[in-house]
Amino acid sequence: MGRILSASAEPSAPIGFDDFLKVDIRVGTIVEAEPYPEARKPSIKLVIDFGGTIGRKKSSAQITRHYRPEDLPGRQVLAVVNFPPRQIGKFMSEVLTLGIPDAEGEVVLIGPGHTVPDGGRLY
Rank of each mutant, 00 (worst) to 15 (best):
P69N: 07
E70R: 04
V108E: 14
L21H: 12
A33E: 12
Q76R: 01
K45L: 13
K58S: 15
R56Q: 10
R40K: 15
K90V: 11
F20E: 09
R56K: 14
E104Q: 15
V31C: 10
V23L: 15
V116E: 12
V80K: 00
G52Y: 05
I100K: 11
R40V: 12
T64G: 11
M92G: 06
P42N: 02
G89Y: 10
Q76P: 00
R40D: 15
S93T: 07
L96I: 11
Y36K: 02
P35V: 08
S93M: 06
Y67E: 11
P112V: 06
K57N: 02
I54R: 06
G105R: 08
P85D: 06
F50E: 00
K22V: 03
I63G: 07
F83Q: 10
A103H: 11
V23G: 04
G28D: 02
L98H: 08
V95S: 03
S59R: 01
I88M: 15
V108G: 07
K22G: 13
P101H: 06
E94K: 02
V27R: 01
G51A: 05
Y67V: 09
G113S: 13
A39Y: 02
E94S: 00
L21I: 12
D24H: 10
A61M: 05
Y36I: 05
T97G: 03
S93R: 03
G105C: 08
R26E: 02
T115L: 15
P69G: 06
E38L: 09
P42L: 13
Q87F: 06
L96C: 08
P42G: 13
I48G: 03
I63D: 12
V77G: 02
K57C: 03
I88F: 09
T53C: 00
I110P: 00
L46E: 02
F20Q: 09
L98T: 10
P42W: 09
G74L: 07
E94T: 08
I63Q: 05
A33I: 07
E70F: 01
A33F: 08
P35I: 09
F50Y: 03
S93L: 11
Q62K: 07
K45P: 00
V77K: 01
F83S: 04
I100M: 11
H66T: 11
I63A: 11
P85A: 09
Q62P: 07
T53D: 14
V27P: 01
L21T: 15
L109G: 04
N82L: 10
V116P: 04
R56S: 12
S93W: 01
V77P: 03
P35R: 14
P85T: 13
L72P: 10
V81W: 00
R40G: 00
V108F: 06
A33N: 09
I88A: 04
H66V: 04
T115C: 11
I100R: 08
L21W: 11
Y36E: 14
D18S: 13
F17D: 13
I88C: 07
I44N: 04
P112Y: 08
K41D: 12
R26K: 12
F17G: 04
I63P: 08
V80H: 03
A103T: 14
P84R: 05
R75M: 14
T64C: 15
V77N: 01
L98S: 07
V116K: 14
P101W: 08
